[in-house]
Design a protein around this nucleic acid. Structure first.
Ligand code: MN
Ligand code: MN
Ligand code: ZN
Ligand code: ZN
Lengths: 144, 144
DNA sequence: TAGTTTATGAAAATCGTTTTCAATATCTCA
DNA sequence: TGAGATATTGAAAACGATTTTCATAAACTA
């Protein structure tokens, strides 16, 4: 489903209101494919819309996550990041600890084995996180 | 290697000192197998050693992680947790989002596939985290 | 042991995040 | 439409986990 529609449906369902700030934040969020912290997106927005406050950006990102159009990520640097969830579906991450580069990957076999492992403990999976930390090719090539 | 020895070696190597607090904290940390936050361990220690300060507990847990006898974990509840690294080697976690139960598991096939995925992106893995979130058997049985 | 260095504990500072609150915008329906 | 009801906003304050500061205490060195 269209992400804008999904967000608006959610607002209606919850009795929340459509505001210009929410629409601007949504548009800016969707038109990029990076992993934004609240701070990141706030700074990007501020250039064009200096009136939008930090708290509004943060609250809106949480709304995106609640309604399922954004995924909340945490790569261990103490900042929560958000990324749009698109039609391409689930992916996991390679995180370069040197330059911060984030590479996305999919590995269906790992997903299957996770189900097996959970089943062995009679555990019902709702979500998972898998991140591989290390050094990207560029950082390795650049030496120590 | 013995964990106490490993810690003492680290202290020596770095020119740090062996203190009674460090030894008490180490002993208490090792004799349990749970996933401690600083707060958890501080409270447990306080019962027997009320003079030990929170900051010392926290600094000491960081030292354990630095010297390789503890692993730092984060299960998404905003608290960093520490667990002893024992001879049994690496494991990942199932985390019950309802009761907080943590189940440990090992899945060598997943570890292998991680290497494959990283190699496909010429990425050098240094560490990884894999957590499966959901509901444990007891919580599922207890119903919604 | 005296001298040097590091550790400690309490309190303050930090940092990302969340909440508060008075002012403003949106929505409802007469 | 437009008044009243309800939700939202932005700035600032509060929050909570973690980290730092600093004066005193302890450990190590020679
Ligand atoms: Mn991603
Ligand atoms: Mn564990
Ligand atoms: Zn890199
Ligand atoms: Zn449970």
């Amino acid at each position: 489903m269209d992400q804008v529609k999904q967000f608006n449906d959610y607002l209606n369902r919850k009795g929340l209101k459509t505001t210009s700030q929410r629409m601007i934040i949504l548009e800016t969020f969707l038109e990029s494919d990076s992993h934004y912290s609240t701070e990141d997106l706030y700074l990007k927005l501020r250039a064009e819309y200096p009136k939008i406050g930090y708290a509004t950006v943060h609250r809106t990102l949480k709304l995106f996550a609640e309604c399922g159009i954004a995924a909340e990520r945490n790569f261990g640097d103490g900042q929560t990041r958000f990324e749009p969830i698109d039609a391409e579906g689930h992916h996991d991450h390679l995180v370069c600890t040197e330059c911060g580069l984030i590479i996305e990957f999919e590995e269906p076999q790992i997903e299957e084995l996770q189900k097996t492992a959970a089943a062995a403990h009679k555990f019902t999976i709702e979500s998972h996180r898998l991140e591989l930390y290390g050094r990207c090719a560029a950082c390795v090539a650049a030496g120590d």
